[in-house]
Design a protein around this nucleic acid. Structure first.
Lengths: 233, 233
DNA sequence: CGGGTCTTTGAGTTAAGTCAATTTTCGTGG
DNA sequence: CCACGAAAATTGACTTAACTCAAAGACCCG
């Protein structure tokens, strides 16, 4: 995450997009690096029959970091879920910024490690685990992430960095978190179908591994989070 | 990839391992960074019923780059496929090396971008494409990679950097490459079953999308390679 | 030549997908 | 506060790509 000074030094421009607006398409030549200020974005690929969500981006997180590669191409499409405010940095400016600030470059590299860890985990989960375990892992990962965000105050309603997900992440007295994703989003993040998620979630509820109440999904933190201090985008 | 000077500066040690030797296990605290000198390594995760191969590592490539994260944990197990020679670098030494050599750090970052690109592509492929297309994409990716290696001379038999895969990558006159993977390896890289790969490959042969001859798989380059100048490990 | 590794095939099973229809939730304007 | 339409959640019946299991062949190395 870039500080205000870094953003200024890189001549970052603040952009506002309405909900459901596509910021860029998969396959386009990548020219920009992004840092989400407020709102929410999904990074996804389109298939014939369904979309695949690579990850959801929260305020304060960056996306499009692969621009720093040689001959960059967008690995996914980026679409706003809600009204969104985002900092946009030119590729060349980012490269220069990293060159001039070794500490920032190191931080950037750690971000890359976290992204890689996330995708690596998810990839082996998809292959090796049944739907139920995949759902738990996903929910667990995002629950940890959102809690961490709340604790560090990144998502306070009084700051600019509002996050539609964290707003919905209410915590009930018994330590259960309300999972702020729709069944469809969960399905798209795991490459499953809504109906499969539905049925599996009901089984998980019956098995006491999570809780369903008034159509909402509640999860109690237990397992350790995926590796990585930061989070994917 | 680290030069001889870099390796020396980082006090890298050269290690030899026999075939089928496990260099490290998934989940272990990560303490080292590796650069393959000769041989071949697979990075994989174990499941109840099958393994999942994250990627195959070729001579000249690095693996274990996630050690540079804070609190590093191995994302996969690493096992030699053949007799293998590998440079081993201490985490702290690597960090220091990157700190002192911005150009190397930049190169390292590009390697991370390539890894991320690879896993991102494969992840959406798994979700969105049928088995046949997945196999083609995989074969195409590695074919491009091995050809590039040959062209840049990384894999000459007279150098130290021998690669069991590239040795088997013979090219027939009509532009078809012999794919040097077993059906099982292909299956494990895609999260499919040997039998599925078998049957699908036969269909692909019938459809003229690749060729089967004396139990060997031949592929003709066509589609562009996945993004990334380097390759995954 | 013998054992171990790969490749193949066939038959039967299954988790997940597909399709279609219904109910609930929820934001918005009246 | 309520009606209305869009979005999300549910359910049931049916289909299917891929997995399982078992058993042969083929190939390669020492």
């Amino acid at each position: 995450m870039l500080s205000a000074e870094h953003l200024a030094a890189a001549h970052a421009r603040l952009r506002r997009y309405p909900a459901k607006h596509t910021i860029y398409w998969e396959g386009e030549p990548g020219s920009f690096f992004y840092q989400l200020q407020a709102g929410a974005v999904r990074l996804y690929s389109c298939g014939q029959r369904q979309d695949f969500i690579h990850s959801l981006v929260f305020p304060g997180e960056t996306f499009g970091e692969t621009v720093i590669g040689t001959n960059p191409v967008a690995l996914s499409s980026a679409e706003t879920l809600t009204d969104t405010v985002v900092w946009v940095v030119q590729r060349a400016e980012l490269l220069e910024l990293l060159r001039q600030h070794p500490a920032l470059h190191a931080k950037f590299t750690r971000r890359m490690v976290d992204l890689l860890s996330f995708h690596t985990h998810m990839r082996s989960n998809t292959t090796l685990l049944p739907a139920a375990e995949q759902i738990l892992q996903l929910v667990n990962y995002y629950a940890h992430k959102m809690l961490a965000r709340r604790n560090e105050g990144s998502c306070q309603p009084d700051t600019a960095q509002q996050c539609s997900f964290c707003e919905r992440l209410s915590e009930s007295a018994d330590g259960y978190l309300c999972v702020p994703f729709t069944r469809q989003q969960i399905a798209d993040m795991l490459g499953l179908r809504v109906e499969t998620v539905m049925r599996t979630v009901k089984e998980l509820d019956a098995a006491g591994r999570l809780r369903l109440h008034e159509h909402k999904l509640y999860y109690r933190l237990s397992q350790p989070a995926l590796a990585g201090s930061d989070s994917p985008a």
